[in-house]
Design a protein around this nucleic acid. Structure first.
Lengths: 193, 193
DNA sequence: CCCCTTTGAGACATTCATGTCTCACATGCT
DNA sequence: AGCATGTGAGACATGAATGTCTCAAAGGGG
């Protein structure tokens, strides 16, 4: 009985620790465990009790980030309807977790793990497919490779994550700024489409 | 006499080592000194003779990167003429050294150094001023904050650096892809401006 | 041809983050 | 109150990367 309760408490604890870890690691990938533990409000000993070691912690953060990104793609339904509308939905779904994407972008060592790499590859393929579909639908420019659009999109999502974390961008401006710049570009147009 | 010759040799050596270091560090900020030395084609001992230690090496790479970026801003003449044309010139000037920007973006610890931070602040201010001028000239959209445009621009430059380094983007496509996406956005427009 | 300088390879000490352990304390339940 | 479990603080060992040294070899200049 108490076992199940502990399990549930541990679960929420794990996630809250992981989110605190993202906050630190997305900004400083080499942060010490002391720092991460302090950010999570626990001691280094407890951190070690939850995760066997640094490697495991990083891995778990990566898995959480990828899971959340996959969830965002699901809720946004990026394979449904017009590609531009799908992308707008994706932005809205993913910007709240932009810090996770910033972490994924900065922690290249993550992709040494085959499972992580496969998961990432799968999500990346989904996004690439979205851009490819958009080009076939005639809503995205065909002069820019779908792979580049996908890559640039991730870069900007990560950029929003960093900017919000450092207070250079208001959280509520994130989605708008990202969507407008990515879809519309920086140039002002006399003739509005 | 031989002294001056040595000095010159050392100087070119320093720069070539720094460039090799950028190649490694922009992708893996935690790379060991062995790795960096091997990438530069020298031994760890010689690396230590040129730079007192890891910290100094990182610092020098940061200084070189900032210097090169400042040079790119100078050659592009970003404070001259229409802002959109200035930005195109800046892209052309900076894309060859995009890996350096990728390094600057990933090595946040760099900015603990006041001198580095000041140099960066100065360049960032120049780019922000460019976007602000563009907005005043009516060529850049005013719905997007100049600070955000500047930040997103750096993110995309770094993204180009990473993509080129990993072979996901052809070097000669870098400038075009960056300019077109950043200025024009991903959306295709029926009425071409 | 000899000497000077630089380099590379390796051994060695040192530092620091990590991983492991113990113990005292707090909290929650019976 | 008594007990059990989880936690924090700290000591300690370990391992890896760094910093320092020596020495033999290579290359260049006089």
């Amino acid at each position: 009985m108490s076992h199940m309760l502990y399990t549930r408490l541990m679960a929420t604890d794990r996630d809250s620790v992981l989110e605190a870890a993202v906050g630190v690691l997305s900004r400083r990938p080499t942060a010490h465990l002391d720092e991460i533990a302090r950010a999570a409000g626990i001691s280094r000993a407890t951190l070690h009790r939850i995760f066997p070691g640094r490697e495991a912690l990083i891995r778990e953060v990566g898995m959480l980030s990828l899971r959340k990104f996959a969830d965002a793609c699901d809720t946004a339904g990026i394979e449904e309807g017009p590609a531009d509308a799908a992308l707008r939905r994706l932005v809205d779904a993913v910007v709240p977790d932009a810090a996770l994407c910033a972490f994924l972008a900065g922690e290249n060592q993550l992709y040494d793990d085959p499972e992580i790499n496969d998961l990432w590859e799968a999500q990346d393929a989904r996004v690439r497919a979205l851009f490819l579909r958009g080009q076939q639908q005639g809503v995205f420019r065909i002069e820019l490779a779908a792979g580049w659009l996908s890559e640039a999109f991730f870069d900007l999502v990560a950029g929003v994550g960093w900017a919000v974390q450092d207070g250079r961008l208001a959280p509520r401006d994130g989605a708008y700024s990202l969507t407008e710049l990515f879809l519309g570009g920086a140039l002002r147009r006399s003739e509005q489409s």
